[in-house]
């Protein structure tokens, strides 16, 4: 492995992981803000999506 490849392999996971945690972090903040604004429907289910409640068996 060359010095260049070593450098690339040491830095790549920070960029790769940074993208992943950024996506999740932004989504979490957005969803928590919805909760803070008292929009539980938006937080706890996709907006406008109908749901069907089902009774227990028997």
């Amino acid at each position: 492995m060359s010095q260049g490849m070593y450098n690339f392999w040491m830095i790549l996971p920070f960029v790769w992981g940074g993208i992943g945690v950024l996506i999740i972090g932004i989504a979490c903040i957005r969803e928590l803000l919805m909760l803070a604004r008292a929009e539980p429907d938006a937080l706890d289910s996709a907006p406008g999506r109908p749901v069907r409640e089902e009774p227990p068996a028997g």
């Binding site: 996709a46 999506r49 109908p50 749901v51 409640e53 089902e54 227990p56 028997g58």
Partner: peptide, 14 residues
């Protein structure tokens, strides 16, 4: 299959 407790399903998964 029907669960023995109340289940809420979302339409696109039903």
């Amino acid at each position: 299959y029907v669960s023995e407790h109340r289940v809420v399903l979302h339409e696109d998964d039903a």
